[in-house]
């Protein structure tokens, strides 16, 4: 093989170009965004809860990326407005997810702020929704004969309550619920909000451009 020098230079140039366009440029674009006014960093408990969320693999069934009305009726489902890049400034790694076996959770703290509800639901989803296919997480809870003073008792319908004693929330369950309650991105979209809008449908996006887009 001769002319390996121009070949390798060309290969490196293509790689550098791709890195520039796919990594460096978007990185700069995202870094330029400020923290939205309504967003606060996670507290220590919420951060621990976030670790539990990651460890339990919630991301496999729950996304954290509400879509725009062009794509899905997420707003009507109460899942919140379409998210923008700066909504995730404190999420590392982000939990965007791809599967929606369960509902999107980016705004679950806004639509379901109840700690008690979440504890019941985590202990046994079927206690609330008899059709739910979400796994139960009883191992995050403790079964005690007698609740101690600083224990959080889980409210359970008689059918799911233990025959004697009470179910109290373990530290992981409490942290996880604290994290879920913190998932609230309902503040107004930042004006410099960055989002891939894909093929927006509007009066000026005529039929021909849509056809081209499909090709």
């Amino acid at each position: 093989m001769n002319r390996y020098l121009p070949l390798s230079i060309l290969a490196l140039a293509i790689l550098a170009f791709a890195t520039l366009m796919l990594v460096i440029a978007p990185g700069m674009q995202i870094d330029a965004r400020s923290v939205p006014a309504g967003l606060r960093d996670y507290t220590e408990a919420q951060q621990r809860g976030r670790d539990v969320y990651v460890a339990m693999g919630c991301v496999y069934c729950h996304s954290q990326q509400p879509r725009s009305p062009d794509q899905a009726p997420d707003g009507e489902r109460g899942w919140g407005r379409p998210s923008v890049a700066s909504d995730y400034v404190f999420d590392a790694p982000h939990q965007l997810g791809t599967m929606r076996t369960g509902p999107d959770l980016l705004n679950v703290g806004a639509r379901l702020p109840s700690e008690d509800w979440h504890l019941t639901h985590l202990y046994q989803p079927r206690a609330i929704f008899d059709w739910s296919i979400m796994p139960a997480y009883p191992f995050l809870f403790e079964h005690k004969q007698q609740a101690e003073t600083d224990d959080t008792i889980v409210i359970l319908p008689p059918a799911y309550a233990p025959e004697d004693g009470v179910v109290v929330a373990g530290p992981d369950a409490l942290d996880l619920v604290a994290y879920l309650q913190a998932l609230d991105r309902t503040y107004p979209t930042p004006t410099d909000g960055l989002r891939d809008d894909g093929y927006a449908s509007g009066p000026s996006a005529d039929a021909s451009s849509v056809e081209e887009g499909d090709g």
Partner: peptide
């Protein structure tokens, strides 16, 4: 797509 993005 640039047109669509501006639109959105």
């Amino acid at each position: 797509t640039g047109k669509d993005v501006t639109l959105a």
